[in-house]
């Protein structure tokens, strides 16, 4: 059961799985807030104690790393899982970024269309979900790849394109 690096990859593979087994595949998304274990708190404290030495050398004023995190802050994750019990296929993607949620749920909606045996989502219908939170997805390329003949290699450029866009925005 692989965890994918990018959500685009997860989306593509999930959509292929859904095309193959639309009746048995289910998509589970889990939003989990966990309190850290004692060991984790210790580890974070250790890390925090080490941190102050570093920025002094670098003299970087612009971006103090996420030092604001207190040691006992809960860990929050959002996990997407596509599972087909018949074949045992399980595809997963995990994130901890709030900015991605809107886009991911948009993806769920588009996958929902193929679940419901509706035709591919029209571009304009899926666009607001993605652009709403400011993180861009390479929509046209993606939906092109989703066709049954889509080879994983063709999706690679699409995925990297998305990344480049994101970097540019930040």
């Amino acid at each position: 059961m692989p965890y994918f690096k990018t959500s685009a990859e997860w989306y593509e593979q999930s959509s292929l799985l859904l095309k193959a087994r639309p009746s048995s595949t289910r998509i589970t998304s889990k939003y989990a807030v966990r309190k850290p274990t004692a060991a984790k708190i210790k580890k974070r404290e250790k890390y925090a104690a080490k941190q102050p030495e570093k920025p002094a050398d670098l003299t970087r004023t612009s971006s103090p790393p996420p030092q604001s995190q207190s040691p006992d802050e809960p860990t929050t994750t959002f996990t997407l899982k596509t599972y087909d019990p018949e074949s045992g296929t399980c595809l997963q993607y995990e994130t901890n970024k709030a900015a991605e949620v809107g886009r991911l749920v948009g993806n769920l909606g588009r996958l929902g269309r193929s679940m419901a045996a509706l035709p591919e989502a029209p571009e304009d219908a899926s666009a607001p979900a993605g652009s709403g939170d400011g993180v861009s997805t390479p929509k046209p390329e993606e939906s092109g790849d989703v066709k049954m003949g889509g080879v994983p290699s063709t999706s690679a450029p699409a995925a990297t394109g998305g990344k480049k866009k994101k970097k540019g925005k930040k």
Binding site: T95, N96, A98, V101, G102
Partner: peptide, 30 residues
């Protein structure tokens, strides 16, 4: 099936507001 798009638009909103524990974007840097 007819309500699917509308439902997921609302669903996305509900999730965005509900999942407040996730990491926000780094505003300063951004």
């Amino acid at each position: 099936p007819d309500d699917l798009d509308g439902f997921f638009a609302r669903y996305a909103e509900a999730c965005k507001t509900g999942m407040s524990g996730l990491k926000k974007r780094d505003r300063k840097k951004g």
